[in-house]
Amino acid sequence: MKILEKEQVYAAVKTNPVYVRPTDLPIRFTAGDRVQAKNIHPRGHTRLPRYVRGKTGTVVRRHGSFVFPDTFAHGKGEKPQHVYSVRFEARELWGEQAEDNSAVYLDLWDDYIVPAT
Rank of each mutant, 00 (worst) to 15 (best):
Q36K: 14
K38G: 06
K38D: 11
N39E: 15
I40H: 14
H45P: 08
H45Y: 14
R47Y: 10
R47K: 07
L48M: 09
P49Y: 06
P49H: 06
R50S: 07
Y51D: 01
Y51F: 10
Y51G: 00
V52R: 14
V52C: 06
V52L: 09
G54R: 05
K55P: 08
K55E: 04
T56K: 10
T56L: 00
T58Q: 13
T58F: 01
T58V: 07
T58D: 01
T58E: 09
V59T: 04
V59R: 03
V59C: 00
V60M: 03
V60S: 00
R61T: 15
R61Q: 12
R62V: 12
H63R: 15
S65W: 04
V67N: 14
V67Y: 05
F68Y: 14
F68N: 09
F68T: 07
P69E: 06
D70V: 15
D70C: 13
D70N: 13
T71P: 11
F72N: 15
F72T: 08
F72C: 08
H74K: 15
G75P: 08
G75K: 04
K76G: 09
K76L: 15
G77D: 02
G77E: 08
Q81T: 06
Q81M: 15
Q81N: 09
H82N: 10
V83I: 14
Y84G: 11
Y84K: 13
Y84C: 14
Y84A: 15
S85R: 13
V86L: 12
V86W: 03
R87D: 09
R87M: 06
F88Y: 10
E89P: 00
E89C: 04
R91P: 03
R91S: 11
G95E: 02
E96W: 05
E96S: 08
E96V: 02
Q97E: 10
Q97C: 01
A98L: 02
E99R: 07
N101P: 03
N101T: 00
S102G: 03
S102N: 03
A103T: 14
A103E: 12
A103D: 13
Y105I: 10
Y105V: 11
L106W: 01
D107N: 14
D107I: 07
W109P: 11
D110K: 05
D110R: 03
